[in-house]
Design a protein around this nucleic acid. Structure first.
Lengths: 261, 261
DNA sequence: CCCCGCCCTGTTGCATGCAGAATGCGTGGG
DNA sequence: CCCACGCATTCTGCATGCAACAGGGCGGGG
């Protein structure tokens, strides 16, 4: 998710001319970007006035954004007012992955149990086939990365969509607001470790099996497969921890370590 | 959750003298109350100026509240701006219960798997014992109702707390912002149907079994029990539907029926 | 030397005013 | 008669100013 950067950070020139979206949305996107880039240390207090100046918005939309980020979990509201950048422990990341696994498991089961049109099945198969073809090639260039991340994200989104549960969608979105809970969070660490390639192949085997279970209506199997699939992310987390690669995952700067960094 | 009501709805008298809390919090609580009481029909557009007048706040804190309620799912932001009261189908309620079940299942399993202090175990046992004693009495008065709702809520909260996962807590809270997903949502229908008493006893049997499984470290059992436990809410939902008792659950007015009400 | 309390500055919470955009209605044309 | 277009009236998004509050530092007392 790339975010538009503006070529100026200067004076209070009327932004109306360049802003194609609302101030609030612009500020929200840019603020998320700033946080995920690690512009704020965990625990750091965020002051509205300088932030507003930095984002080129007034305090009114900024406060909306801060409130929203607090709901998403990236910020924490202080009881006395104001906000603080939130930090996440490695345990938190494990737990977030666990919850994604649980929800994806539920999604896969419901997807298996509920009615699916031929078109939906075809698109699921197509997504898996595309991933199959991609991981067989393995040209480790940027094009490959982008395509894998796209297709992997599509697959996971498709499973949730096939569950046809607006409520599940809602919960899933909520979990995924935490960047390191995303199915793609550990892709970069996968490409940089010796066992990474293996992991990607295993991951794709999971995708195939999950899709088959869904198509065949095997709910219990779909669920346990999806859960196990999410454990790959956890394995990747441990590997990344061992190899000090954690800076490669999104939102890395928000991770609090017990001792030094 | 009773909400303070103010004895005046009149002119723009400076509220500073009577408001013990922030305007935003007051407006948030009152707005939730209004929605759950059915003051807005599903799909109805909410206009800021009259609402602000009604809640005796200015538009600035009100907009924070509306934005927040939209995140919680009670409102929906229109693409062109403004908000609309959200409606929920019976399917949505089923799905929300399902997700609560899935998350509570995960909580129960993690609670079983993770370390528990003697004190925590004692408090869990005490809660179950209190519920046991309560349901054995069965004096169907208001006092009983209040106590059951309190203890039942405590039990469910305790299971989540024992999972010791801030992330799970966060997800659970998010699901529970939908009133009909709460573990207590169907209590009133339970007290009004012939099979209700039976259901309460069965529910309590579940509580006992879940607690034992957690204490004994039987994760898989705890999970499947907790899931099955949530199915009681679904059964209650179907019963309530058959007997037209759906108006007794919180947020009833937000339910959209295919045909007439 | 340490702790408690007061004052002062910086910061947040909120109200309000303004400008631009949406929506609904009326009118005219097909 | 129906549809489309334009205008007027809201309504929302946002900036700004003000007042109260927090919290940090300094001074005085124990």
């Amino acid at each position: 998710m790339t975010v538009l950067r503006f070529p100026f950070t200067d004076h209070a020139l009327t932004q109306r001319s360049v802003s194609l979206e609302s101030q609030t949305l612009r500020a929200l996107l840019e603020m998320r970007e700033l946080m995920l880039r690690g512009e704020f240390r965990p625990g750091e207090r965020l002051r509205e006035v300088p932030l507003a100046a930095r984002l080129n918005v007034s305090r009114t939309p900024l406060r909306l954004v801060l409130d929203r980020l607090a709901q998403e979990g990236l910020l924490k509201a202080r009881p006395t007012g104001g906000f603080v950048a939130n930090g996440f422990s490695v345990e938190d990341i494990r737990d977030a992955i666990e919850i994604r696994g649980v929800l994806e498991g539920a999604a896969a089961r419901q997807a298996a149990e509920r009615f699916k049109t031929n078109d939906e099945i075809a698109r699921l198969r197509a997504c898996v086939a595309a991933l199959d073809a991609l991981v067989r090639e393995t040209p480790d260039d940027f094009e490959f990365f982008a395509r894998y991340i796209d297709l992997n994200g599509q697959f996971h989104a498709m499973v949730v969509a096939l569950a046809k549960s607006a409520m599940l969608n809602r919960s899933m979105e909520h979990v995924l607001t935490l960047p390191f809970a995303s199915p793609n969070a550990f892709f970069l660490t996968e490409t940089e470790t010796p066992e990474g390639k293996e992991t990607i192949l295993l991951s794709q085997a999971h995708h195939r099996a999950i899709a088959n279970a869904i198509i065949d209506g095997e709910g219990a199997r779909a669920e346990s497969l999806a859960r196990e699939h999410s454990r790959l992310a956890r394995t990747n987390l441990e590997t990344a921890l061992r190899q000090q690669l954690l800076t490669r995952i999104p939102g890395a700067s928000l991770i609090k370590f017990p001792e030094a960094i």
